[in-house]
Amino acid sequence: PPQTPIRAAMTSIQQLRGDLTSSGDQPSTNLATYFKNCTVDPTQDVLKRLETLGQAFSQRFGQAVGPRCIVLGRQRFNLGVKLYYKVMEAMLKSEEKRLSVQNFSKLLNDSTFHTSLLACALEVVMATYGESSFRTGGYNHGSGGVDAAETNVCFPWILDVVNLSAFDFYKVIESFIKADPTLSKDIVKHLETCENLIMERIAWRTGSPLFELLKQEHEGGAAEQVETPAS
């Protein structure tokens, strides 16, 4: 049958859900082992963060799409969590191979890393359901049963929901694409568009951590600064 935008969207959704069927909403045995190998076990912090951000996401999704869609928001979030765990495990496997270490305590206790990874997973889910499509393309079918045409859940909406700077989100995109080779061409394109938006505009807004980093770089790097006598 001929490919239509709706058929393409339905195929993407089925593919995403299919790819995540075997992924649980809890860390896999392998991922749990990475957590246990840490000097400080991040498990409880990870679960607590997911609970807090899950509530924020469902609530904000309901506000943006309609109060009857809070349950739908929760479903999107749960799918995002599965993808978050799946990609985290793949990233750690790749890092273990590259660095020959098994203790990722610092990374796995970094709240910004987890929030960025989760935000990217949620953006992939939202884009798959057509809820984060950029309107320049000319259509937005809200193929998951949500009429998102009147709402504003397009990127960078997710950054505001999880309270993340665009600059920190940017860091995770390339590794995310590398770690999940099953992402469709359209989703990769979507993430690339997010990347470009950050690079060209969002990272330069007032309050971006980029300015502090540029300042440090200009001063020769924070680590190289001469300590004052007092310290």
Binding site: R98, L99, F104, K185
Partner: peptide, 21 residues
């Protein structure tokens, strides 16, 4: 396959990007 341009070098992973190496 997609046309995404991978810019990170082999020695750059997620650990370095979050300053955790």
């Amino acid at each position: 396959s997609h046309d995404y341009h991978f810019g990170l070098e082999d020695h750059e992973g997620i650990s370095e990007l979050f300053d955790c190496d």
